[in-house]
Computed example of a mutant assay.
Amino acid sequence: MAPDSRPVRRRLDPTVGKARAMVGALLGLKTTGKNRVVENPPLILVGCSGGPDSLALAAVCAFFARRGEVRVGAVVVDHQMQDGSAEVARNTAAQLRELGLDPVLVRTVELDYDGVGPEAAARAARFGALEAAALEVGASNVLLGHTLDDQAESVLLGLARGSGTRSLAGMRERRGIYLRPFLGLRREETLEICDALELQPWHDPANQDPAYLRVRVRHGVIPFLQDELGPGIAESLARSAGILGRDADFLDELAAAEYGKLAERGGAAGAAGAENTGEKGDLGQIWLPEAALRGLAPALRMRVLALAAVELGGVQPSLERLAAAEKLLAREGSAGPVQLAGKVAVYRQSRNQAGPHEGPGYGKLVLRRNT
């Protein structure tokens, strides 16, 4: 009897199958059955550092590219924070090309430490590079390899900083062009995927450096909580983030609706005499009626103030700065200005101020972009 000459199919690793199901669910693609080749498949990009999480994600996405329903490329960002980072980026790009990803882009960034630490500066530079790359090649989405463990760490960091609901909600599965399909996957499972698919991940030495708060949370706080409270603490923290995320999304929707009704926009002239042009290109100030702000629930009021600051080009203000801005509504003491992050100031027109008590700035909080 002639030996069976049919090729032996390797058994699918269950963790790889689980990861494929997560990516497929988020992209609306099937992992089984006959593939449906698309004439002009959409392009997605994977943000890949070369570490186990993002490399595993890239390999899983390559499966969908081979089925012909989507094109998959990647962006490797070199932050230049360590010696040899350029070589790491080149090696990562080469491994991604071997997986069949195309295009594979390498972007070298310069960090801007304008009042922020290295982690925040690297994050800002990374997302700037990812967005520019997606725009350049016409990608519909950028996939990121954050895991359940990253989510748990984010919640604990938010608690330590006394942050609000949005911060405690952690990272969203969908936000703009960004997708995070692995938020239900443990970090150790991405290592299993790399082993199963014979990948060679890069292990960032910064992930072992206790100088970083997130590293201390990862290797000190979470293991301590697990020892004291029992296993499953990471899953519980991630589950809390999911619950708070839905609450935060609802509050954000309400705040956006109120902001749309209240915000008046104008150029960079003085508040009392500025013409309310409404032209975004000339936007230098935003006015918010004090009486209407006082009538909002505190959770909405803080969000409306934050939306104005961000629209003027600032960054999300801290709760402390927002609370200081909110105190201006009491019309007691100083009329400001209160400085928010990102060179945005907020003040009110004082009743004791000389000149007519009228114009677009009177009876309103004025948020101004400092030039």
Rank of each mutant, 00 (worst) to 15 (best):
D247C: 03
P210A: 01
E290H: 05
P317L: 05
N207F: 07
E275I: 11
P289A: 06
G230D: 01
E198W: 08
H219D: 13
A241H: 06
P298L: 08
A269F: 09
E198K: 14
P317D: 12
Q226R: 15
G270Y: 07
A257F: 06
A297F: 02
E275L: 14
G270Q: 13
D282A: 08
G333A: 04
E235M: 03
K280G: 06
L319G: 14
Q200S: 14
V215R: 05
A238L: 08
D249E: 09
V310Y: 01
Q226P: 01
L305V: 01
S236L: 13
P231C: 02
A309S: 07
V315W: 14
G260T: 04
E264C: 06
S318Y: 03
L254V: 07
L322E: 03
P317C: 05
V221W: 12
G314E: 01
D249N: 01
A272Q: 13
G260Y: 05
E332S: 08
L283H: 07
L254H: 00
R218W: 04
R303Q: 12
I222V: 15
H203L: 15
R218L: 09
L199R: 03
W287D: 00
G260K: 10
A330T: 07
K327V: 13
I222N: 05
G220P: 06
G245L: 13
R239L: 12
S240R: 11
I233H: 00
R218G: 08
L319T: 12
I222K: 03
F250Q: 05
A269I: 08
G314S: 07
F224W: 12
E311C: 00
I222E: 00
P231S: 01
L251C: 01
P223H: 09
A292D: 12
Q208E: 10
G273F: 09
L288R: 08
E198P: 05
N276W: 09
R214Y: 00
R294I: 12
E332Y: 02
D247F: 14
L251M: 05
I286C: 02
L329F: 04
L300Q: 15
E264H: 07
E279D: 13
L305Y: 00
G281S: 08
L288W: 04
A325Q: 02
L229C: 11
E235I: 00
